[in-house]
Structures are given as C-alpha cells and as structure tokens.
Simulated assay, not measured.
Amino acid sequence: MKKTIGILSVFLIFWGCATTKSDTSINSKRMLDDMVTHKSFKIESEWAYPQVTNALSSILNAGLLPPGSSVNSISLIGNSNFVKIKGDSITGYLPYFGERQMGGGYASVNTGIQFDDIPKNYEVKKGKKNSYLISFSIPDKTNLTESYTVNIELFPNLTSAISVNSTHRFFIRYQGNVSKIDDE
C-alpha cells in the first residue's frame, strides 16, 4: 500500500509540473499573438552579435568591451536599448558594435542605430513553431542618408532575435526579450 501511494504521489507531482509548464507556454503564446495582432510590444536586447572584423578584435584586445563579452557576442545588460512597435510607428535605439562603411562624420554623437518613423514594407508572417517573422525598412533618425532593413523573429517563449542590415554599416544581430508596452 505504501509503495502504491509513493508511486501515485510521484506521478501526481510530475503531472502537476507538466500542466503548469504547458499552461505557461499557452499563456505566453496567447500573449505574443495579442501583441503582434495589436502591434503593441517592446523588445529589449540582452546580447549583440556583430560581424567580427580586425577592428572589433582590436577593441576587444584593448579591453574596451563589457565584462563577459567576446569579439562575437557583446553583453547589453545594463545598456539602454529597445525596439518599440506601437500601431503604425516604430521607434528604436540599439547600440552598435562594428564598422561603419561611410557617413557618420567626426563630430557625430550618435553611434547607435536609431529610428523613429513609420516603416516601409512592413510585413508579418507566421514562422515555424508558432513564431512570428516581422520585416521592414526604416530611415535613421539622425542621419537621413542611412536606412535599415530590420528582420525580427518573435518566439512563443517571449524571446526575440533582431537582425539589422544598414546602408552604411556592417550587419549586426541582437537577442533579447519581448514584452507588452506598459500603458503610460
């Protein structure tokens, strides 16, 4: 009898944990569906993955990257960054690590990727395993000759992957989390 109760207890614990996990994933999926449908969410990145170049390797060797970073993955924890989609407008600031190919000027204070506009070619597609693929083109907020092609993938566990192609800079990717926009 004690053996049966012990086996039944273990079964109930595992079943209870599995139910909680599936309920959580279903709630996350519903929340993601709602955010994408209503175009109302914010992404905060935790990691940047720049294209590795000799210049970036020199910066690493000089000790100028944050602790825990390597030449191909840079921690953004503690650094302000975001991509906010609210209605038809998209606002973003992402720190940039890499090489600029043209433009920018010597006195330019802006070194990051900044945009605040209504995007062109905004497209949302359903991806594999309940993810969403969002793509758009948008001009730079401070340098009107530069523009970005942005691809965002949102996953049901509320994580994100962003890739940015620029007309003036090398390619860079970001990884982070997606959340609802707090009502202000």
Rank of each mutant, 00 (worst) to 15 (best):
L94R: 06
R30H: 03
P139C: 11
Q101N: 14
S163E: 13
D183L: 15
E46T: 05
I181M: 04
S69V: 02
M102A: 15
Y122W: 11
S108V: 09
L133T: 00
T159H: 11
L158G: 07
S25W: 03
I152Q: 01
V36K: 01
F155G: 01
L158F: 01
I59C: 06
G78N: 14
N151M: 11
T37R: 14
K141N: 02
G98Y: 06
V36A: 07
R100N: 09
T167P: 12
Q175S: 14
V150F: 06
S73I: 12
S89C: 05
L94F: 06
N81M: 10
A107V: 13
M35K: 00
V124Y: 04
F41K: 05
S89I: 07
A161L: 10
N165I: 14
N79R: 04
S57Y: 07
L12Q: 11
R173T: 08
G127S: 09
L32P: 03
L94Q: 06
Y132C: 04
S57T: 05
A107K: 15
K129W: 10
P50D: 02
S57W: 08
H38C: 04
I152W: 03
Y174T: 02
M102C: 14
N61D: 12
V36T: 02
N151F: 12
T167H: 10
I172N: 05
S137H: 07
L65A: 06
S22A: 08
P119D: 02
V164D: 04
S137M: 08
M102P: 00
I85T: 02
M102H: 13
Y122C: 06
S166V: 10
P139G: 09
G103K: 12
G87T: 01
L144I: 13
N110L: 05
I138W: 02
D140W: 08
T145N: 15
K39V: 08
G103S: 12
I134Q: 01
G105Y: 13
C17R: 04
K86N: 09
G98D: 01
I90V: 11
S57P: 00
V124F: 03
N54D: 15
I74H: 01
I43L: 12
A107S: 15
N54M: 06
A48D: 00
D182C: 03
L12R: 06
E146Q: 10
K29L: 12
S147M: 12
K180W: 02
S166G: 10
T149N: 13
R100W: 09
S160N: 09
T91V: 10
T20Y: 05
Q175K: 15
K126G: 02
S89K: 05
V164T: 09
A62D: 08
Q101M: 15
T145P: 12
M102F: 14
G16H: 08
Y49L: 15
T159S: 15
P119I: 08
N61P: 05
N79G: 01
F136W: 14
K21S: 08
L154H: 03
S80V: 11
N121V: 04
L32I: 05
S166F: 07
I113Y: 11
Q175P: 06
S147N: 14
